[in-house]
Design a protein around this nucleic acid. Structure first.
Length: 569
DNA sequence: TCTGGCTGCCC
DNA sequence: ATTCTGC
DNA sequence: GCAGAATGGGCAGCCAGA
């Protein structure tokens, strides 16, 4: 028996072709060819690498290298200085490209490098992921530099991009599923089975290996299982009750959108497992949450979704998200539990006592949910109404906001309102105040700095550093970076527009702890919007006024598209 | 022993 | 998280 | 409308170096 191995160069070639087109069908074709050419014993690894990971999310093993450390590895492998690498990265906006370029002109070349195999690449990255403790950073860098030294320039490009988690091919999970359907499923019409298997297993590598080795019939036998996280259903967004009701067929169930952390809870007898939205196992972070499930879910087995919210231990009032974040910890859990106890607001039941509910309509799932939850102070079913009246919806929204929620999630009550991973089909719709600028105050802020863009933003700015004017001190204090809301046209014009205000160092009247790539005279004003103001450890606006050593920042900042050239200082 | 840079993951 | 864009 | 790729604030954990 031969032991077939796949040269990494074949992957790099396929990636290059995929990257070269913007047409999804062509990308899929290239991926199909790669998957067909891949020996089945490594096909899961090829898929994980293409997802930019080594394991499915719920395994929780990360490489632990991102841009800064990767720069050091590239320098080490090519014999150039970090400064030179950084300088080139500024131009390319892609460390992979930079690695490719420096690999081509590197001084020392290994004489007879063995061709890289997928196994070698994967195993090296895996060793990096598993290195911990003193000296581990250096060890990781040695592993990576070694890999790069034996790689062709093109391979180096994709290894670097894989490690830093931005492959930028234009393909992700959904395209992989299409490719699997074509390559192994027997045609695109089998895509739905593959997608279903992925949604309930959350493991694209396993789905791939299964269909490649055992065929589509095995894929159809995937079932919802306790302990295996289900990919979460997400919501689209709209800005008015009328639009929402129209989209949902005139009627919906509207629920409070609590400002906490989404948790998928699995109960198997007394054994509880908690998964975050990205399917990390967070059981250990919430012993109290687990206990609430154990005690108040009156079913032997269940998968229930809930929003976990920090509450004031004295008043029972809900606390802001920022405070809940102190619970995302590994150490001092007991103390944090006392300081920030949590309540669970349940909103879905995906599995109850042997019955998979994911294909049932939402009202049915909700009925099951209410039947098995014993509601207490800390365990509640999410507050809701069922309505077909836009005004009632608006009133309920106001009430939600008054009660400390972000807004509403409005959900379809139709027959087809199954549990559908992702935000597809508009079955769930978010309604938040800041989706309409007339409902939230916009702010005019001064552009004081900028950051070089990456990927498709190469050569322009990725984000601007924005500041508020402080008339008392006659200075500009930062409140946020802002990198979304710009059209391609905005971005193309920005460097030219800002050029004449460009200065080599921070302006003396700009107060900032953040080091921008480019500084400007504080003159140009733009309009931005956000969801709310948060306390900030880094932004200098209102520093020490509300709280010692805290400034103010904007949560979810974005450019509205309006330049305030008239207002320019 | 402390601190700051970096990373990953919540939103 | 929000936003934009090619298909 | 989907899928993907840009980008945000801010927290804790980890490790290197002062």
């Amino acid at each position: 028996m031969r032991n077939p191995s796949l040269k990494y160069s074949l992957i790099a070639d396929a990636y290059e072709k995929i990257e070269d087109t913007t047409k999804r069908l062509e990308m899929t074709d290239h991926l199909v060819k790669l998957l067909k050419d891949t020996p089945k014993d490594v096909i899961d690894k090829v898929v994980y690498l293409t997802q930019g990971k080594l394991y499915p999310d719920f395994v929780g093993i990360e490489i632990g290298i991102a841009e800064k450390l990767a720069i050091r590895a590239v320098a080490r492998a090519t014999g150039y200085r970090e400064k030179e690498i950084e300088e080139d990265l500024r131009k390319t906006g892609d460390l992979g490209e930079t690695a490719q370029k420096f690999s081509e002109k590197r001084t020392q070349v290994s004489f007879f490098p063995k061709p890289l195999t997928v196994e070698r690449v994967y195993e090296t990255l895996d060793k990096m992921a598993k290195s911990t403790g003193a000296g581990s950073v250096d060890l990781k860098l040695s592993f990576l530099a070694g890999l790069l030294s034996d790689a062709s320039p093109k391979e180096a490009k994709y290894i670097i991009r894989t490690v830093t988690g931005s492959l930028r091919l234009g393909i992700a999970d959904m395209t992989v599923l299409d490719a699997l359907a074509i390559a192994f499923g027997g045609g695109k019409e089998t895509r739905e089975y593959l997608e279903r298997a992925y949604n309930i297993s959350s493991d694209l590598g396993r789905v791939t290996k299964t269909v490649a080795e055992k065929g589509i019939e095995s894929i159809k036998r995937f079932v919802v299982s306790l302990g295996e996280p289900i990919r979460p259903m997400l919501a689209e967004r709209l800005g008015s009750p009328a639009e929402i009701l129209e989209k949902l067929g005139g009627k919906c169930i509207a629920e409070y959108k609590y400002d906490g952390e989404r948790i998928q809870t699995h109960k198997k007898g007394d054994q509880i497992t908690l998964f975050s939205r990205r399917l990390e196992d967070i059981t250990k972070q919430y012993p109290d949450g687990g206990e609430l499930i154990r005690k108040h879910v009156k079913a032997k087995e269940a998968i229930i979704e809930a929003e976990c919210v920090a509450v004031d231990p004295d008043t029972g009032e809900m606390k802001p998200f920022q405070e809940l974040m102190h619970r995302r910890r590994k150490y001092g859990v007991k103390k944090a539990m006392e300081e920030y106890p949590v309540s669970l607001f349940m909103f879905d039941a995906l599995y109850v006592d042997g019955k998979d509910l994911t294909l049932e309509p939402y009202p049915v799932r909700r009925q099951h949910l209410e039947k098995i939850i014993e509601q207490t102070d800390h365990v509640k079913v999410a507050e809701y109404i069922i309505t077909d009246d836009p005004e009632e919806l608006e009133r309920f929204f106001e009430k939600a906001v008054e009660n400390g929620c972000e807004g509403l999630v409005c959900k379809s009550v139709n027959e087809d309102s199954v549990y559908q991973a992702g935000a597809r089909g508009w079955l769930w719709i978010k309604y938040k105040r800041d989706y309409k600028s007339e409902m939230t105050d916009t702010v005019d802020l001064v552009v004081v700095g900028a950051f070089h863009g990456r990927g498709k933003r190469a050569g322009t700015y990725g984000a601007l550093l924005l500041a508020a004017y402080d008339p008392d001190e006659d200075v500009f204090k930062t409140v946020t970076k802002c990198g979304t809301g710009f059209t391609d046209e905005d971005l193309k014009k920005l460097p030219k527009m800002m050029e004449k205000y460009r200065i080599p160092h921070r302006h003396p009247r700009v107060i900032s702890t953040i080091e921008a790539d480019v500084w400007f005279e504080p003159i140009v004003v733009i309009e931005a919007i956000g969801a709310e103001i948060t306390l900030s450890p880094i932004h200098t606006c209102a520093m020490d006024i509300i709280r010692k050593d805290s400034g103010l920042a904007i949560r979810f900042p974005r450019f509205t598209g309006n330049y305030r050239l008239d207002k320019s200082a």
